[in-house]
Design a binder for these strands. Structure first.
Length: 444
DNA sequence: TCTGGGGTCCTAGGACCC
DNA sequence: TCTGGGGTCCTAGGACCC
């Protein structure tokens, strides 16, 4: 918490719907719902006119259709238009200060202390009012709510208080007056689960929260969350505004209109998801060591399986094969509602030969030619064999398995079946005659 | 027409090393 | 041989946010 209110939070109002209403005058003043046009969709944004009928973000499309009157516009979403509009808004914020932290397409923090502004309450109010006008003009009609306070959390709460088209400054020293009457559920980070736990011990407002000891809160919701709430109730928050946060993971997922059961189809979906992840990975010049497969069953139960590789990977074939191996260990009975593929443990990709000896096997997998994989008949010839993570193998003693990692002339394999649970891991020489590639998967 | 898609952070247990 | 503890890495799941 700073000594003066110098952190601004901006939240654009019903952003996607507002862009649609800007671009299609016939939609102005009418209920508009963006998202959820597919069979299993949910609402991304409801205009305030649609909210009046009970439509909400994250609600199923079917529920929103039941609630809204005939004539409501249900739109699929034009994300290019939203991000272009977002960029216009972020430029306006950067006029205020070099320290702008964009949290999402419609939300950002600005550190006003870095911008040399009049930080009196009157000065801040004038600044916020002028900003709102500039955003409305620059975007051609989108409005936003602004909160200014002495910390990020308070600024975010402030921007919520007068939504939509809000403007709220919380002068330094008055934080607790504003905070204490609020329901705990309005604190960022308190969702349904935490809200229920707090409610079960009689904590409903921030003032109630303030009464509880640190020990109580930690035992109720865990170390990090408990101490976070303890501090929040006292308006203690010194998180800085951080521009240009680096991404920590990249993922793609898809929910299917009808549950999938065919293994070949699942594998081609994995390949498609891996391609999407890779195009973003390569666009960012990054690669990651941990591949995660996300799997949601017909009954919405959701599992993840992950594997960390020896080196970062950014090629679709390796990522898809690791994901496919992970899929093979999951019981698919009943059908699959959603599949996802992700990569985390990101590292900026360093091009060059400096570490060539160590990364050569994986580097070879980056540009896969079918010939990299040794044919089933290991004819005499070039002795060096290339193995890549996820590849199926057959070992004379261990049976069927798959490559976990390789390097420096060795290959590490994991042997497990869908029913055997955690597998055995063994390392072999890369040219061990007992180890052979198994039948390669058929991607088509 | 029950429940999207892209993320972040935390917890807990086990393996492994010192 | 027994016993213990700390630290790090990996995996799986869950809560939360927009």
């Amino acid at each position: 918490m700073r000594r003066e209110a110098s952190i601004l939070h901006l939240d654009l109002d019903a952003f996607f719907a507002a862009v649609e209403q800007r671009d299609k005058p016939s939609l102005r003043g009418k209920p508009v719902v963006v998202g959820g046009t597919g069979g299993r969709g949910v609402v991304a944004t409801a205009s305030y006119e649609a909210r009046a009928y009970g439509a909400r973000s994250a609600m199923s499309a079917g529920e929103a259709r039941r609630r809204c009157p005939p004539g409501t516009a249900f739109l699929g979403g034009r994300f290019a238009a939203y991000s272009a509009t977002s960029r216009v808004v972020m430029e306006e914020l950067r006029e205020l200060s070099p320290l702008v932290e964009q949290v999402s397409v419609d939300e950002a923090y600005v550190d006003l202390a870095a911008g040399g502004h009049d930080l009196s309450t009157d000065g801040l109010t004038a600044l916020a009012a002028a900003l709102k006008v500039r955003i409305h003009e620059a975007t051609g009609g989108v409005r936003g709510s602004v909160g200014i306070a002495s910390s990020k959390t308070l600024a975010k709460i402030a921007s919520e208080l007068d939504k939509p088209d809000g403007l709220r400054v919380i002068p330094a020293g008055t934080e607790l007056e504003v905070l204490h009457p609020l329901p705990v559920r309005s604190l960022p980070g308190v969702g349904p689960a935490t809200g229920d736990r707090l409610s079960s011990v009689g904590v409903r407002t921030v003032a109630d929260l303030h009464q509880r000891s640190l020990t109580d809160l930690v035992s109720l919701v865990g170390q990090a969350h408990g101490s976070g709430l303890y501090r929040l109730a006292r308006a203690e928050d010194d998180r800085p505004v951080v521009p240009d946060r680096e991404a920590k993971s990249v993922s793609a997922e898809r929910t299917y209109a009808t549950d999938l059961t065919d293994l070949g189809r699942l594998e081609s979906e994995i390949r498609w998801l891996a391609d999407r992840v890779v195009s973003r990975l390569q666009g960012d010049g990054t690669a990651g060591r941990t591949v995660t497969l996300k799997f949601r069953r017909y009954d919405f139960t959701t599992l993840t399986r992950s594997q960390t590789l020896p080196q970062p990977v950014d090629d679709a074939r390796t990522i898809a094969e690791v994901a496919r191996r992970l899929l093979a260990g999951i019981d698919r009975t009943g059908g699959v509602r959603l599949l996802g593929v992700g990569v985390s443990g990101l590292a900026t990709y360093v091009q060059g030969d400096l570490f060539a000896p160590a990364v050569e096997p994986v580097a070879a997998a980056v540009e896969p030619a079918g010939d990299d994989v040794v044919p089933d008949d290991p004819a005499p010839g070039p002795a060096r064999r290339v193995w890549h993570p996820g590849q199926d193998v057959e070992h004379t003693e261990m049976g069927r398995g798959w490559v976990w990692g390789s390097g420096l002339g060795r290959v590490t394999c994991r042997f497990e079946g869908p029913t055997t649970g955690p597998g055995k891991v063994r390392t072999f020489s890369g040219d061990d005659p007992d180890l052979q590639p198994a039948d390669p998967p058929d991607w088509r």
